[in-house]
């Protein structure tokens, strides 16, 4: 399972960076989105994939059962998803506004600030 996910994560990173290198702003946004998904999966995988029960403390005991899954990576991913959702919303507004102002979504035409 780790191996499959590792390849999937690699693929997502590659796809994300490839899209970011395209000239269209929309593809740049999609690339960033893929990149953040790849990162989330990476946290999930690196946190350890174990076949175990949920870390709930049974009635009358003080600690969760010995073989329980680590809930922290999922909490991290949840936070990261929320943040990337907010950022994506901002990117879409920026896309819309910059298209209005610049009149193009070609990133090669946005060199005005580099000279």
């Amino acid at each position: 399972m780790d191996i499959i996910l590792a390849f999937l994560i690699g693929l997502l990173y590659a796809a994300g960076i490839y899209s970011m290198l395209r000239r269209s702003f929309i593809k740049l946004v999609i690339g960033l989105l893929l990149l953040s998904q790849a990162t989330n999966l990476l946290i999930f995988t690196a946190g350890g994939l174990t076949r175990a029960v949920a870390p709930l403390v049974p009635d009358g005991e003080k600690i969760p059962p010995a073989l329980s899954a680590d809930p922290l990576p999922q909490a991290l991913i949840l936070t990261a998803i929320v943040i990337s959702f907010g950022v994506l919303a901002f990117m879409l507004v920026l896309l819309h506004r910059s298209h209005q102002t610049i009149g193009s979504d070609d990133l090669d035409k946005m060199k005005g600030t580099d000279e």
């Binding site: 953040s36 990162t39 946290i43 946190g47 991290l76 901002f90 920026l94 910059s98 610049i102």
Partner: peptide, 24 residues
């Protein structure tokens, strides 16, 4: 707008890298 797109993109990219490092 032009400056902002560059600024936003590169900073989000760096956040993604940081988050990957953190996960590992």
């Amino acid at each position: 707008m032009e400056g902002g797109i560059k600024y936003v993109t590169i900073n989000l990219f760096s956040s993604a890298i940081y988050l990957s490092g953190l996960g590992i």
